[in-house]
């Protein structure tokens, strides 16, 4: 029987914009440890700078 390869149950997500945040949440909620790395002092990315969003005119924040 082949020996199972040792894997690490952690993922690094580089960039904490809307995409990085969603990836991190999905992974953490499925039982993986996540390192979310963001160079600015807050997560949120460019979406946090938007006023409303298309096409629902929801507040981006």
């Amino acid at each position: 029987m082949a020996k199972a390869k040792q894997v690490t149950g952690a993922v690094m997500v580089v960039g904490g914009g809307i995409a990085g945040m969603q990836s991190a949440l999905d992974l953490a909620n499925s039982g993986y440890y996540v390192y979310l790395v963001e160079k600015s002092p807050a997560i949120g990315g460019v979406m946090s700078q938007l006023d409303k969003t298309f096409p629902t005119n929801d507040c981006a924040m």
């Binding site: 199972a4 894997v7 690490t8 149950g9 952690a10 993922v11 809307i18 995409a19 990085g20 945040m21 969603q22 990836s23 991190a24 999905d26 992974l27 953490a28 499925s30 039982g31 993986y32 440890y33 996540v34």
Partner: peptide, 21 residues
């Protein structure tokens, strides 16, 4: 795509699910 990447990234790690978190 973010959820898709989470799926793809987790695909090969499922044997270690819950080992660190």
């Amino acid at each position: 795509e973010a959820s898709a990447a989470a799926c793809a990234a987790a695909g090969k790690l499922s044997s270690a699910r819950g080992s660190l978190a």
